[in-house]
Design a protein around this nucleic acid. Structure first.
Lengths: 333, 333
DNA sequence: CCCCCGGCTGGGACCGGTCTCAGTATAGCG
DNA sequence: CGCTATACTGAGACCGGTCCCAGCCGGGGG
C-alpha cells in the first residue's frame, strides 16, 4: 500500500474492504443505495488505515474546492499573531507558502482544522495554541508531517519555538524584589493555558527562593475586563502585583485609578508581553517584552530543518527582556 | 480551450504556442535547454491566455505542496480580524471552508497572495484591506470567481460588506454637537485607508452642515503612538476631539493626562471602533461601536449568493452604534 | 419460465499537472 | 562521408479522486 511518504489512497481502502474504489467514493460522499454491511466494511477499512481523502485530487476533477480564500491585514499588536505573521514572512523567504486557519482552542476544533489542512495539502504544521489538550489532540492526529509548536513556554513537546517563561517571570519578579517589595501578588491567566501555569509556577518558585510566601492567587482570562475585576480582589497587604499579561494590567490600572489609588506610589504593577498599548497606559506600564516575531522566524528554521531531515535541537527558546517604565517604585512604608 | 468555468490549461498554452505540454512545463519550471525563441513563444501564450498553473494538479503528482499550515488563535480584539473570524465560522456553518493569508497592504503583495490562493484553489475570495490600490489590484487579477470586499465603508466596489462610516461619524459628531461643542477637531487615520478618508469627509460634511468651519486636520497611523503625538499638536481652541479610532484616542489620553489636562472637563474625546480596551481607558472612552463580526457573517451570505448566481444586493451595509462613556461632557466655558 | 426492472457494484475515462523515456535534428569528430 | 554525442522536444504513464456508464444479481409480473 502506501508508497514512500504518501498516505493510503482510495485504492488501498478498496482493496482492504474487498470492494472497488468507486464504492469507497460512494461511502465517503454519503450516497444512498449501499448495502449496510458493505458500508461498514469500507468504514472499518478507512478507520484501520487512517485513510484521509486527498482534497487536491478531488479539486482537480470537480473544479471546486468549497473554500473561501481570505486576505487579511498584518497584525502585530497581538502576540501570537505577530508570531504567525513573522512565520509567514520567513517562510516566503525560504520559498515556502503558508495557509492559516484560526480556531477556538478546543481539541475538537483544532483536530478538525488540522484534518482540513492536511486534506488541503501541507508539508508541515505550526500550531499556536498553548493548551495542553491541544498539543495532545495534534499528537493524536499523527499525520506524518513535521509539526512545530509555537509559544509553548519552553515545555518539552516535540519540536517547538518558544520564549523562556521562567526567565521572563524572573526578570519581572527580581525587578520588584530589588525595589524592596516582599508582598507581591500574582494575577494569572486562565488555567487552561500552559503559559499561565508556567508563569504562576515561576512566580511561586521565585517567591519561595527568597523565603517569601506567595500571596493568594488571582486569575483572569487575559482580557482587560478580567484585570479590572481581579484588581477589586487584591490582597490589601500587597505592595506590588505581577500580572500575567499587559491587558489585565491595563484593566487593573483602570480600577485602581478609579478607586483613588496612585500607581506606583500606592502599588507597583508589572505586566507581561509589552504590547503596543503598554507604552501608553497611564502611567506607562513596566512589563516584560517577548519577541513574538522572533519565535515565528525560529519556527521556520525548525520546519526547514525537519523537512530536510536535518537533526536540529528541536526546542528553541528565546530570552525575554525587562522594560521598566513608570508603574513600579519602591514600596511605600 | 477553457471549458465551462475552468481556466486555460497547460494544453491550451501548448496548443497556442505550437509546442507540447511538456515544453510548457519545462518553461514554467525554469528548465535549462530550451531554445530562447521557443521559451518566448510559450511565455507569450501564457500571457495571452492568462494561464495560471493549477497547484492541485501539481500537488497531486509531486506529493508536496511547499506550504506550511498554521493553526492560530481566534482573535476578536482587532476589528478586521474578528470580521475574518466571524466569516470563518459562518462559512463552516454553510459547509464552506476558509484559508487565509495575511499580507502587507501593498498592491504587489496582495496580488501575490491572491495568485497563490487562486492556484491553491478557492471558489471565492474575501479581502479585508481597505486601500484603494488594493481593490484595484484585486480587480486587475480578474480571476473569474466571486470577490467580496470587507469593511470598505460602504463605497461602491463590486460586492462588499461594510459598516456605514458616514452614519458612524455622524453619531459621534452629533453627540459632541448636542453637548454644545463647536470647536471640534478631527484626528484622521492614514490617507491610504479608504476608511480614514471616509471618516474625514464625513467629519467635514457634518461640520459644514452646521455652519462650522472644520479645524486643522491632524493625521495618525491608527497606533496609540501616533495618537500620543497628535495630541501634542491639538488646536488650543478645540474643546472636543474626534479620533478616527480608539487606539489613537488611547494614546492621546495618555498625553493629555501627562500634560495635566483633565478629560472630559478640559477636553472631550470620542474614539471609533469600541475595541476591548475602550472600556478601560482612564477615563473610559466614549466611542462608536462597529459590528465587525456582523460584517463577516454578511460576507458569507453574499458569497453564497454569488456562488449560486443569485442576484443579491451586492453591497450590504451595517449600522454602527454610539457608546457613551466618560470622555465627553459639555464644553467648559 | 422468461423478461424486465431496480438495487447495488465495478470499470474506465478524465481532471491538469510532473515524471521518465524516447525521438529528432544538428553539430562534432574521425 | 558516416557515426556518435548533444541539444532540444514530444509521447505517454501516473498521481488520487469523481463522473458516466455498464454489469450483475435477485424478485415480481406476464
Amino acid at each position: 500500500m502506501a508508497r514512500d511518504g504518501r498516505g493510503p489512497s482510495m485504492h488501498d481502502v478498496a482493496a482492504r474492504a474487498g470492494v472497488s474504489h468507486q464504492t469507497v467514493s460512494r461511502v465517503l460522499n454519503d450516497f444512498e443505495g449501499i448495502r449496510p454491511e458493505t458500508r461498514e466494511r469500507v468504514v472499518a477499512a478507512i478507520e484501520q488505515l487512517g485513510y484521509r481523502r486527498n482534497l487536491a485530487a478531488r479539486a482537480l476533477v470537480t473544479g471546486r474546492t468549497q473554500t473561501i480564500g481570505m486576505i487579511g491585514p498584518v497584525v502585530t499588536d497581538i502576540g501570537p499573531l505577530s508570531t504567525l505573521h513573522a512565520l509567514e514572512r520567513s517562510a516566503r523567504a525560504a520559498g515556502l507558502h503558508t495557509i492559516m486557519t484560526s480556531t477556538e482552542a478546543t481539541a475538537a476544533q483544532v483536530t478538525e482544522a488540522f484534518e482540513f489542512l492536511l486534506g488541503r495539502g501541507i508539508d508541515a504544521l505550526a500550531v499556536a495554541a498553548q493548551h495542553q489538550e491541544i498539543m495532545d489532540a495534534v499528537e493524536a492526529v499523527n499525520p506524518g508531517i513535521p509539526v512545530v509548536h509555537l509559544l509553548t513556554g519552553g515545555q518539552p513537546v516535540g519540536a517547538a519555538a518558544a520564549i523562556d517563561q521562567n526567565a521572563g517571570v524572573r526578570l519581572a519578579m527580581e525587578h520588584l524584589l530589588d525595589l524592596g517589595h516582599t508582598r507581591i501578588q500574582h494575577v494569572m491567566g486562565p488555567q487552561t493555558y500552559q503559559e499561565a501555569l508556567l508563569r504562576r509556577d515561576a512566580y511561586e518558585l521565585v517567591m519561595r527562593e527568597r523565603g517569601l510566601e506567595p500571596l493568594p492567587l488571582l486569575a483572569g482570562d487575559w482580557t482587560a475586563d478580567s484585570g479590572f475585576e481581579a484588581a477589586a480582589s487584591l490582597d490589601p497587604s500587597a505592595s506590588a502585583v505581577f500580572f500575567a499579561n499587559d491587558q489585565m494590567a491595563l484593566g487593573a490600572l483602570h480600577y485602581l485609578t478609579e478607586s483613588g489609588a496612585v500607581v506606583p506610589r500606592d502599588l507597583s504593577i508589572v505586566g507581561f508581553d509589552d504590547n503596543a498599548e503598554a507604552r501608553h497606559t497611564v502611567p506607562p506600564l513596566t512589563t516584560v517584552r517577548q519577541d513574538f516575531a522572533g519565535v515565528g522566524r525560529l519556527a521556520v528554521d525548525i520546519v526547514v530543518a525537519m523537512l530536510a531531515r536535518d537533526p536540529l535541537p528541536s526546542t528553541q527558546v528565546l530570552a525575554p527582556e525587562l522594560i521598566v517604565r513608570y508603574t513600579t517604585a519602591p514600596p511605600r512604608s
